[in-house]
Design a protein around this nucleic acid. Structure first.
Length: 210
DNA sequence: ATTTTCAAT
């Protein structure tokens, strides 16, 4: 099934420009979100839809995605004809990590929608340089809400190129520094999410009465 | 050494 949002594939140049994980990403005043939606049926996950979105008219792309969710995941609320509530798994690949406001909105939404699983891959970290940035806290909140956030690696770019880009048999050609930048950002994200782990551990110890 | 960021001109 082709998404009603954007049946057109992403242009090669746009993909490369916006997903390039360089340290000083000048002029990326847009954010792209490539998504794959799977429907969970018993133990199986069936591919259901895919596509990409871009932020528009002051609305961040994550919120735009939420706005279209009802159309993208029929039966996510309520139930189908057999009276069964449907479960979905969504994986998205975003050129920027979410801002704090979007993280809050997403966490809030997901906590009220347990039949939806979300996995987020990001190419670059948005405003995460300062130790006490609200963006960092937002990412931790997402993690606590059960979202798996990961920095994109070569295989993820390769997959996106294959899936979302109008590539016409052109193979994915990694840019200089892709690997190093990915490793650097993954370490950074790891350190950002670390306090989250220790909190979880403390909770676990408390539960065990230690 | 320093550079940027879901714009605003």
């Amino acid at each position: 099934m082709i998404s009603k949002l954007d049946s057109v594939l992403l242009a090669k140049k746009k993909f490369i420009f916006h997903y390039k994980n360089m340290r000083w990403a000048k002029g990326r005043h847009e954010t792209y979100l490539c998504f794959v939606i799977k429907r969970r049926v018993g133990p199986d996950s069936l591919s259901f839809d895919f596509g990409h979105l871009r932020n528009r008219s002051g609305c961040h792309v994550e919120l735009l995605f939420l706005r279209h969710l009802a159309a993208l995941c029929p039966g996510l609320w309520g139930s189908d004809s057999a009276g069964v509530r449907l479960s979905y798994s969504i994986t998205w690949f975003c050129s920027w990590s979410p801002c704090s406001a979007c993280s809050h909105r997403l966490s809030d939404f997901l906590s009220r929608t347990p039949n939806l699983r979300l996995r987020i891959f990001v190419s670059r970290l948005y405003f995460c340089d300062l130790e006490d940035s609200v963006e960092r806290e937002g990412l931790r909140m997402l993690k606590r809400a059960g979202v798996h956030i990961t920095v994109m690696t070569y295989k993820d770019y390769f997959y996106c190129w294959d899936t979302f880009v109008a590539r016409r048999k052109t193979g994915f050609k990694p840019w200089d520094g892709l690997q190093q930048n990915s490793v650097r950002l993954a370490r950074k994200l790891y350190r950002i999410l670390l306090p989250c782990e220790t909190e979880d551990l403390r909770d676990a110890f408390k539960l065990m009465g230690l």
